[in-house]
Design a protein around this nucleic acid. Structure first.
Lengths: 207, 207
DNA sequence: TATGACACGTGAAAC
DNA sequence: TGTTTCACGTGTCAT
């Protein structure tokens, strides 16, 4: 714990340092020889989908940020670490992340599909592969979106102690409580002050 | 098999709506016959670790929440979905979630260890298994902690539009901005009001 | 049927 | 050393 990282303590408006410089790297095994080794021919759609996040392929809504407010944190999109892309590479078939007992043999198509049908390269295995990589991209977008929201929340809270995701939310919680209490106190103070002088209703100043 | 789980649906905090009734279920295959089928003898520590979350084993700091304030959301610990517990069960060895090319044959010891040494059941494989399940539990605790922080943040924000994790944070962001603007306006209003009456400095009511 | 949200386990990395 | 945080891919459920 203690995670010193950098603890930059940025004030809300000014340039937001993109958070502790976590992971930020690109594994050399991506775009490596092993990726294009024994796969048949449909690795392209995987790369297209996987590349959506970078903005290289489709001009997409990568930076969603248009939901809450105007400007927020700025583009702090970063590249993640592609550990072992696990798809399109050495093991084309799914390794379902756990021994699931293979009770449901619904899919489980023959591996290394693609050139065994010769004519139709769009059998169920290819289709499954395709929308799997689409799911991966969607999930990654979802993660990025939540992280951005977390960053703008962090940018609003003045006293950040730690940079953990959970600690950011915790600090935001105490800050919101403080702010609520402060606003309430201020409000009743202004009420008492106005009550002391009934004449001249208060200048509304700003609507 | 198609283990349909059960969907126990216990409601965590009584007064506040417990969030969208997300997943909340317990698979019947946990504590099932398959778990104790062919594993040798060291499944106990796994269950002990895995059971820490429930509070059955170790009297631990499951409900961390004691960091921010007094009461907040209450203990909204809930049980997660144990899809296929993947550890200690049918496949004792690791299925590393992806074909990692097995370039590092560091571990990969013979499965069903534990009673083959008779005297020392603590070889490297067992040790690795053990601290792996410990990592799993730690990670799960981390997830629960962050979720709880998110819930108390949600409890503070009055106008919640959606129940998504990202939307909760987004609504909290706009609420904090509103609150800050409101407090600032109130503050200058009270300043103007005090300036209009210099005599008798206002009793601070609550110092 | 397809998409979104979620919890999970897991390797890497920072402490 | 071990612990903790993180992003990832994946299966499942609900819309």
């Amino acid at each position: 714990m203690e995670h010193h990282h950098l603890l930059l303590q940025l004030s809300p408006p000014p340039p937001p340092p993109p958070l502790p410089a976590v992971h930020l790297m690109m594994s050399p095994s991506f775009f490596d020889a092993g990726v294009f080794a024994d796969v048949g021919g449909d690795w392209m759609e995987d790369l297209m989908h996987l590349g959506e996040l970078f903005g290289v392929g489709v001009g997409g809504d990568d930076d969603d940020n248009g939901g809450v407010d105007g400007r927020v944190g700025g583009g702090d999109d970063r590249m993640q670490e592609w550990q072992n892309n696990c798809e399109g590479g050495g093991s084309p078939d799914h390794q379902p992340s756990c021994g699931d007992g293979d009770g449901d043999g619904d899919g489980d198509v023959s591996p290394r599909d693609g050139e065994l049908g010769d004519g139709d390269g769009d059998n169920s295995a290819t289709r499954k592969r395709r929308d799997r990589s689409k799911t991966i991209v969607s999930e990654r977008k979802r993660r990025v979106r939540m992280k951005e929201k977390l960053y703008e929340l962090r940018a609003l809270v003045p006293n950040i102690t730690k940079m953990d995701k959970a600690s950011i939310i915790a600090d935001a919680v105490v800050y919101v409580k403080d702010l609520q209490a402060h606003a309430r106190k201020l409000k009743e103070e202004v009420a008492a002050l106005e009550e002391a002088r009934p004449i001249r209703p208060p200048p509304p100043s700003a609507a």
